[in-house]
Nucleic acid binder design. Structure first.
Lengths: 211, 211
DNA sequence: TAGGGTAATGTAATGATGTGA
DNA sequence: ATCACATCATTACATTACCCT
């Protein structure tokens, strides 16, 4: 399995978590061929790479809270507010600026994620509604067909039909603007997905051709 | 500059390595296995907080290319491959590991963006189809109503019709449920806690007769 | 064979730097 | 100077393979 396939699996599993579960399991077993980790017994000697006591940080809880508070009020940071905040926090103004920059960048990603999940849910419900509508259309067509048959049958039993006998023909013409063929002619618009709606929802992804 | 542009730049510089040569040279001796250079390691003297001589943290073109190549083959990095790669690149294995970790994170974000746009496209087309189906349903109902009226009218002209008159009786009452759902243009963060709004709004009361 | 300890590794979050607009 | 963005790096935590009793 290459990464593109893996990517698609991820994508599909997000829409259909249940179905992807089994797949994932079989896959992970496949990958299980070789022992992934070997005991290396690296020494704990302190001569590790460049990192002794010199750098890195971790802001305190209080600092984080204050920063988040200010960020919630305003994502941008003017010089004045920066200096004031740095003073309050006991931090270098540079640090405050960096914090805000990073916070903005990561907020973007977080928001994207949230929007994705929202869109996904909305899309799923839309798909369901569409499905229901499709069945309804079929049902209505069936009923309409029955009705037309009934009308035909009734007309054969009617001897005299002097007045407006064109009511049925007028009704099928009245809606011609929206959907020209009245009956089982065109289902193509939906038939693209009718049969595989729940199997392959993403049809227009460029790199989705492997599934 | 986004990733794609950057990738292209990388490719270009691959074709014309001379252009990046000077920079590469100044850059590449950062965390050499042998810290022969100016001590950018630990340096107990606390005043050089982070950034003395090691402002050259960028990997060379060649290193990037090789890393990307390996990443393209496999996103995971086993110890073996890591050490081998580190050897080839003249980097600390730790750096290679870090590079892969960050690359995976970046890749995830990029993927999420792609997924979002794909899902959005698909969702829009689904919405369109749903809209068409709704108009079709309305049209069919109209036609059906007309047909029923016609049937009623015809029956008034027919004296005795003992045979199946029940074909049309069952068709009018089952479909009063559908109501167009609210339409959401935006999927903002504010909607996060309204998730359940989207979940199967019309599943109740509709008997599911699968095709 | 089972369970606990631990080193190695993965992921997520986050701090920090460099570059270009 | 600030910001967005990509990148490098460190820390915290979870998971897992190996070793041991």
């Amino acid at each position: 399995m290459n990464h593109y396939q893996q990517d698609q699996m991820m994508l599909i599993s997000q829409l259909f978590p249940a179905s992807a579960h089994a797949y994932t399991d079989t896959v992970s077993q496949q990958v299980e061929k070789k022992p992934r980790r070997k005991r290396n017994k690296k020494s704990k000697g302190g001569e590790n790479t460049a990192n002794e006591m010199n750098k890195k940080r971790k802001l305190s809880e209080k600092q984080m809270i204050l920063l988040e508070q200010h960020f919630g009020n305003e994502h941008k940071l003017e010089s004045e507010r920066k200096d004031k905040l740095a003073m309050e926090l006991g931090l270098d103004p540079r640090q405050v600026a960096v914090w805000f920059q990073n916070r903005r960048a990561r907020w973007k990603n977080k928001k994207l994620e949230e929007e994705y999940t929202n869109l996904k849910k909305f899309h799923e419900s839309t798909m369901l509604e569409k499905c229901l509508l499709e069945t309804e259309v079929l049902k209505l067509r069936e009923q309409l067909s029955e009705a037309e048959k009934e009308i035909q049958r009734l007309r054969e039993h009617v001897e005299v039909v002097p007045t407006n006998s064109s009511s049925t023909s007028s009704m099928s013409q009245s809606m011609e603007v929206m959907e020209p063929p009245p009956f089982f002619d065109e289902f193509e618009v939906d038939n693209v997905y009718n049969d595989n709606v729940f199997l392959m929802p993403y049809f227009n992804g460029i790199e989705w051709t492997y599934i």
